[in-house]
Design a protein around this nucleic acid. Sequence first.
DNA 1: CTCTTGATTTGACTGAATCAAGAAAGCGAG
DNA 2: CTCGCTTTCTTGATTCAGTCAAATCAAGAG
Lengths: 156, 156
Amino acid sequence: METTWEQQLRTAGLRVTRPRLSVLGVLAEHPHVDADTIATAARTVHPSISPQAVYGVLKALVGSGLARRIEPAGGPALYELRVGDNHHHLVCRGCGLIADVDCVVGQAPCLQPSDAAGFAVDEAEVVFWGLCADCQVARRTHVHGTNSAFEEGVIA
Amino acid sequence: METTWEQQLRTAGLRVTRPRLSVLGVLAEHPHVDADTIATAARTVHPSISPQAVYGVLKALVGSGLARRIEPAGGPALYELRVGDNHHHLVCRGCGLIADVDCVVGQAPCLQPSDAAGFAVDEAEVVFWGLCADCQVARRTHVHGTNSAFEEGVIA
DNA sequence: CTCTTGATTTGACTGAATCAAGAAAGCGAG
DNA sequence: CTCGCTTTCTTGATTCAGTCAAATCAAGAG
């Protein structure tokens, strides 16, 4: 697995560098992370890595299709290594937890708009909003505000 | 129509103020606008309105259900008056143009994830990415880069 | 008309991300 | 193995969207 990243980088026409391997390592362990968390985690392996290097690496990875960038409303961009399978995401309104959902249909775009209004659609992005199991419990226990942040448009 | 806003504000328990009426006026004319554009446009009617007032008004409108906030990846948040019908959006990768798409199914969430992973889902947000009619032409005419900005992950 | 409460202004501030210039490292050719 | 070109990383400044807080101002109930 370790060497695979090296190969993948080369295949993508990218040089194999320490910052890139560190970032890939972090992404492999954490399915959905923001740039800042990646920088912090990567520093345990490569202490001198700069935040901007992380942005640069991520841009290169996304640009070459090795990683995917998702931008849930109300938070920083997140990155994941799972690419090419056009899956979707569940986002928790309470704690920001993200889970993957397999796409029912196979290829992108998995959905077609009822009226495309002249658009050539190449991707249908689906985000399911709700409460994760833990936050549902926390809500019911009525300790309103236990789980920090993200409090806002909860519909129920 | 003019007076309806006043009524709607009152019904929502909000005071009727000049900044709020100005912002509502702008939103009624432009279906999908960002806060900055709203501020600029509102100033033609109410010159002294401050940018922060616009943020305040928008937060109040969204909070009371009179407006909806959407946040397409890679751009500032946009606001629209069309609420309560759970419709979706088409976004142009070329120029950022946004079009509404009626939801095929009626109520939210219109879609259910195949495996909710314990989440209580209350909304399915769908964004269709592609090229609008104009940008398709511009692309074909090969004047690459005519339509500013937004250039990046075009799949085709 | 007056008073209370809610809204707006003003101005400072945060967080995420980009840009630019110089230094450093990858890696192919010799 | 070494050279040297090119890509990538570092450092530091800068933008952009949006928030926060204190003070002023106005809506509208009484």
